[in-house]
Amino acid sequence: MILTRRAMLIGATTTLAGCDRIGSNARFREALFSAENFHKWAQRSLMTRDAMAREFRPDQISPIFRANGTANPNTPEYKALWRGDFADWRLRVDGLVTRPLSLSLAQLHSLPHREQITRHDCVEGWSAIGQWRGVPLKTILDGAGLRSQARYIVFHCADRMGTGRPYYESIDLTDAFHPQTLLAFALNDRPLSVANGAPLRLRVERQLGYKQAKYLMRIEAVQHLSGIGAGKGGYWEDHANYDWYAGI
């Protein structure tokens, strides 16, 4: 039996082409994508509700915190807010809440803060450690008063991605009320830069980078994710089939 490099290459390529074909079968994809449910169930079973993400020492902070995704929303509305130093920016909190809110940056600054040095893990594989300061999301949700039907918190952003559709993300109440889940307005002791999501971004530390929505404009409490975007709970979930649960 003689296996030439060429024969092995053809063999590898045809087997992989076979995998590609299976991978485009709708029922197989459904089965493959259901691994997300297993990972969510397994991880939530293995950790306590408030299990903390690792916090690091100041000397472990990345010298440069890599920014990713949109570098600048560059819409006329965003540019106007930026020129005014975000004095006119307001965070709307609405949906299934008893007291809808509209908060200015100054109001957020006056609320109790949390500071944490955590690791940002991009789905691509890289990590950056930074110090975040912000208001725990729990403080805002308690202030707005969630209605009992609320199951998810949706974050609407100012940036539009390549497809022209707005960026958004969502998390469930377990992560929304986690003590490390912040609405962050400062990175490494400085106000958030535009590349890192000025004036406010989400930190949900037990999940990957694409969940950390930047340029927050509106927080909405909902019962189902189906009515928002294409219904999968986030920009990348809708447009590239990323897992909604990004704990892995």
């Binding site: 992989l16 995998c19 590609d20 991978g23 089965a31 990972h39 789905v123 089939n241 897992d243 892995i248």
Partner: peptide, 17 residues
């Protein structure tokens, strides 16, 4: 690579399943 054309999302689905 699986899939043959770069697709991080599909590679992750295969890998994590």
């Amino acid at each position: 690579t699986l899939p043959a054309r770069y697709n991080l999302s599909m590679s992750r689905h295969w890998h994590l399943a």
